[in-house]
Design a protein around this nucleic acid. Sequence first.
DNA 1: CTAAAACCTGACGTCGGTGTCAGATGCAAG
DNA 2: CTTGCATCTGACACCGACGTCAGGTTTTAG
Lengths: 121, 121
Amino acid sequence: MRIGEVAQRAGVSVRALRYYEEQDLLQASRSPGGHRHYPDTAVGRVQLIQQLYAAGLPSRVVRQVLPCVDSGEAPPKLLDQLEAERVRVEQRITDLLTVRDRLDGVIANTRNPSAECFHGQ
Amino acid sequence: MRIGEVAQRAGVSVRALRYYEEQDLLQASRSPGGHRHYPDTAVGRVQLIQQLYAAGLPSRVVRQVLPCVDSGEAPPKLLDQLEAERVRVEQRITDLLTVRDRLDGVIANTRNPSAECFHGQ
DNA sequence: CTAAAACCTGACGTCGGTGTCAGATGCAAG
DNA sequence: CTTGCATCTGACACCGACGTCAGGTTTTAG
């Protein structure tokens, strides 16, 4: 599978895939002429990478985490790192929940201004 | 209250506060000599701004959302915008939950490798 | 065989929220 | 009045995940 097709299937740009390779997140074999060639599993991997990015993990962390998610286990040395990331993710989740509730409050109150106005934080 | 104290209390840098003013997120009166002076409510407002940033909202959106969160209601014209943001936030939450569960899976499996290896997505 | 489409490697641009530095002032304490 | 910290206004630096352009090569369709 060539880079264009992977990009299209995974919903990312060709540039992004090259960047992932540069960051050692995604490997590709090469044709005699130098063109990248990917296995079918690449699409799923790219989507996984996107998910981790969406969670706010930077490349260097993704690089560590990826093989663990693949294999389902981690070298003990990375456990602390993983747990630290878990904590961060959890924190972001609670932040987002708070913001969501605030937005909900404003929306509901605007739709139905009769209700009591809670301005608590 | 002067800028240094606000920064310290809110846990952000002085630079950030100036930036917020530049972005019309936070107003300050000025002393005769030009120094910023903030009301006590500024600290809470800054924390709110931080929360919105943490949720991934960019400055221009925060600028629209802030007065609504203050007043508890929004001009109807902004309702669509607010709901769009709500959807985005919700999406990010589910992304984060997925990632969290993946991390949990790896962590649990590493701690107790005996268990069955679920590699579901 | 040839033209077009896809791909290649650099390299520089972008955007947003800050850090940081320079050089000039304001303000409070002795 | 002076000293010294806080603050002021620019302005440039940074980082990360790409976008984008240039100029050249490979692959594929006809």
